[in-house]
């Protein structure tokens, strides 16, 4: 029995090490400044992934900007306002359902709703909004968790001083849940970086270099979509592996950042709630 368990654990470890080593060995030789800093051209045939990098950054920024107020607001409603248990149950069930829906379905509905119905066409913005719906449950959950740790006595203290509900939320509760929002954002960034199926039909495949606002309204491939296109449709495996290596570095970095943040915030809370936050 022990051997089987040991083998299983070893397989798990071996898989991730194997994937990392393989992707880096194949991809890193192809990463060059030229690849990172230019746009692709057909004549002469040349591959550059700068537009894809920029598109990825745009889509992350746009998604986070929309997602944070929505997700944090929903969490605040659930923790601070909601009194009707049935409503809470329905909202939480909906969030559970959302996190179980596969990304290809998000892509399809995003295409129908944002691109066609809302008239955004295939654009980074449509892709970002689709990702917002996808990642709402996770940012809601992290914010909720951190709201739960804000001591009830703080709220009571503020109420006793005559503050209204909104004032209490603004000055006492919100500063207390910043850590949850940050963790949620980091986790969401990791997921956005790795997402591809939801973006295929909403954000498109274009490789043109745009400024931020121009980029939002025009189609553009993120790194993952670019990887897919290079590997599956153009057979450019060098570029595909280079992108894969970059993606691995980014997601590994972001995931370790998220883990570190979580541990850091937990430690901070165990040491007691920081005093400065109550002064406001």
């Amino acid at each position: 029995m022990k051997t089987i368990m040991w083998i299983s654990a070893f397989i798990t470890c071996g898989l991730i090490i194997g994937i990392i080593v393989y992707v880096f060995a194949k991809g890193i030789p192809f990463i060059s400044w030229d690849l990172l800093s230019t746009s692709p051209t057909y004549i002469p045939p040349h591959i550059g992934i700068l537009p894809d990098i920029m598109n990825t950054i745009y889509i992350v920024i746009a998604s986070l900007v929309v997602m944070v107020p929505l997700g944090a607001g929903a969490a605040i409603y659930l923790e601070e306002y909601a009194t009707n248990q049935k409503v809470v149950a329905v909202i939480e069930y909906a969030a559970e359902t959302l996190s179980g829906i596969p990304s290809i379905i998000y892509g399809l509905v995003g295409m129908l709703f944002f691109c066609e119905f809302a008239g955004l066409r295939t654009s980074i913005l449509a892709g970002a909004l689709t990702l917002v719906i996808m990642n709402l449950p996770s940012i809601m959950r992290t914010t909720q968790e951190s709201l739960k740790t804000v001591p009830q006595s703080y709220r009571e203290g503020a109420f006793a001083l005559g503050a209204g509900k909104w004032r209490v939320i603004r000055t006492v509760v919100l500063p207390g849940c910043v850590d949850g929002i940050i963790t949620g954002c980091v986790l969401a960034t990791g997921r956005i970086l790795g997402e591809s199926a939801a973006l295929l039909f909403t954000a498109g495949f274009a490789h043109t270099l745009n400024s931020f606002f121009e980029g939002l309204m025009s189609p553009g491939a993120t790194l993952t979509v670019a990887l897919y296109v290079y590997a599956k449709e153009q057979g450019e495996f060098g570029a595909a592996f280079a992108i894969a290596a970059i993606l691995m570095i980014l997601t590994l970095g972001i995931n370790s950042l998220a883990m570190w943040l979580e541990r850091h915030f937990r430690k901070m809370r165990e040491q007691g709630y920081p005093q400065e936050k109550t002064k406001e």
Partner: peptide, 20 residues
């Protein structure tokens, strides 16, 4: 170590799995 390995496996983008 094992838990981080699991966390990393979860973070690998699906296109990278596809490519490998």
């Amino acid at each position: 170590l094992l838990q981080s390995a699991v966390g990393m496996l979860a973070g690998v983008p699906s296109v990278v799995y596809g490519l490998v």
